[in-house]
Lab assay of single mutants.
Amino acid sequence: IRVFLPNKQRTVVNVRNGMSLHDCLMKALKVRGLQPECCAVFRLLHEHKGKKARLDWNTDAASLIGEELQV
């Protein structure tokens, strides 16, 4: 999953079965001084340019493999 972060940063996270978005993104956020409780995560909708859909931090990350997200 490719993730666009604040301050023009980005990362790619690996996903294993059973992991939530929170689990996958925790380290990437922590390294940058961010906390999931203070952030929202969105899936970028490529079929609708510029649109995005808000996701819950408990979403199964395996269902988002190959997607691009924005925090």
Score class of each variant (00 low, 15 high):
residue 70 Q to P: 00
residue 69 L to E: 03
residue 54 R to G: 06
residue 30 K to P: 02
residue 19 M to S: 10
residue 43 R to S: 05
residue 54 R to N: 05
residue 11 T to F: 11
residue 64 L to F: 11
residue 21 L to A: 00
residue 5 L to Q: 06
residue 61 A to K: 03
residue 42 F to P: 08
residue 30 K to Q: 15
residue 27 K to L: 08
residue 39 C to E: 00
residue 45 L to K: 15
residue 18 G to L: 00
residue 22 H to M: 13
residue 71 V to P: 03
residue 16 R to C: 10
residue 60 D to A: 06
residue 29 L to I: 04
residue 33 G to P: 01
residue 56 D to W: 02
residue 37 E to D: 03
residue 54 R to Y: 11
residue 4 F to W: 13
residue 11 T to I: 15
residue 36 P to D: 02
residue 50 G to R: 09
residue 42 F to A: 05
residue 37 E to G: 09
residue 3 V to W: 00
residue 64 L to S: 04
residue 21 L to F: 03
residue 53 A to K: 09
residue 35 Q to N: 11
residue 71 V to L: 11
residue 4 F to S: 11
residue 3 V to L: 07
residue 14 N to E: 14
residue 60 D to P: 12
residue 38 C to M: 15
residue 26 M to P: 03
residue 22 H to T: 04
residue 1 I to F: 09
residue 33 G to D: 07
residue 27 K to C: 08
residue 7 N to C: 02
residue 28 A to N: 04
residue 45 L to G: 15
residue 58 N to M: 09
residue 15 V to M: 01
residue 31 V to W: 06
residue 4 F to M: 14
residue 9 Q to G: 08
residue 69 L to V: 08
residue 52 K to Q: 15
residue 2 R to E: 10
residue 48 H to V: 12
residue 35 Q to R: 13
residue 29 L to T: 03
residue 24 C to Y: 05
residue 53 A to P: 07
residue 6 P to T: 00
residue 29 L to E: 00
residue 55 L to A: 03
residue 11 T to Q: 06
residue 63 S to V: 05
residue 70 Q to Y: 13
residue 2 R to L: 07
residue 49 K to T: 12
residue 63 S to G: 10
residue 34 L to I: 06
residue 36 P to I: 05
residue 29 L to Y: 02
residue 67 E to N: 08
residue 42 F to Y: 14
residue 56 D to V: 01
residue 7 N to H: 11
residue 17 N to D: 15
residue 59 T to K: 07
residue 71 V to G: 04
residue 43 R to Y: 15
residue 2 R to I: 15
residue 27 K to N: 07
residue 45 L to P: 14
residue 4 F to Q: 10
residue 66 G to Q: 03
residue 3 V to N: 05
residue 3 V to Y: 05
residue 45 L to E: 13
residue 24 C to W: 03
residue 3 V to K: 05
residue 14 N to C: 08
residue 31 V to Q: 10
residue 22 H to S: 13
residue 15 V to P: 08
residue 2 R to P: 05
residue 14 N to G: 11
residue 68 E to D: 10
residue 71 V to M: 06
residue 34 L to N: 01
residue 26 M to L: 14
residue 36 P to Q: 07
residue 23 D to E: 14
residue 48 H to L: 10
residue 26 M to C: 14
residue 62 A to V: 11
residue 22 H to V: 10
residue 37 E to R: 08
residue 12 V to T: 11
residue 23 D to I: 04
residue 61 A to N: 04
residue 68 E to R: 06
residue 29 L to D: 06
residue 11 T to V: 15
residue 50 G to M: 07
residue 11 T to K: 06
residue 43 R to M: 06
residue 26 M to Y: 15
residue 71 V to C: 03
residue 59 T to S: 07
residue 10 R to P: 08
residue 62 A to R: 11
residue 19 M to V: 07
residue 44 L to C: 09
residue 50 G to F: 06
residue 69 L to H: 07
residue 45 L to W: 10
residue 60 D to W: 01
residue 17 N to Q: 15
residue 54 R to V: 09
residue 20 S to Y: 07
residue 7 N to K: 06
residue 8 K to L: 04
residue 51 K to L: 12
residue 22 H to K: 15
residue 48 H to D: 13
residue 20 S to G: 04
residue 25 L to F: 07
residue 57 W to P: 00
residue 64 L to G: 02
residue 64 L to D: 05
residue 41 V to I: 08
residue 36 P to T: 06
residue 30 K to R: 12
residue 4 F to E: 11
residue 13 V to G: 03
residue 39 C to R: 05
residue 57 W to L: 00
residue 71 V to S: 00
residue 19 M to T: 09
residue 40 A to F: 04
residue 15 V to R: 03
